[in-house]
Amino acid sequence: MSTIDVNGTAVEVDEEGYLVDLGSWTPEIGTALAKGDDCELTDNHWEVINFLREYYEEYQIAPAVRVLTKAIGKKLGKDKGNSKYLYELFPYGPAKQACKYAGLPKPTGCV
């Protein structure tokens, strides 16, 4: 099991860098997870991360990217609900990468 450093505290992550204890997530941990990928989180990133956390809270799953795109479009507008915008924010795949920073498991269907 590997760990990352969050303001001096060691936080456990799995071999792909996903948070082990989902319940322990804080925005600081999200920032640290992103830093590990050389990704600086902006308000636009947080909008998607917070949306994912709300979705998980309600449905107990991380949405597939198609579902995420559609739902973001409905909530934040068409200019954000498209894969170009989301891939620019999260080049490693919006669902996969944003879920990681949001402290969620990998989306079901992501292998």
């Binding site: 309600e58 449905y59 597939a64 579902v67 559609k70």
Partner: peptide, 11 residues
């Protein structure tokens, strides 16, 4: 996992 059934419409 019962809340997940309510997400099926999204899929």
């Amino acid at each position: 996992f019962s809340p997940t059934y309510t997400a099926l419409g999204d899929y």
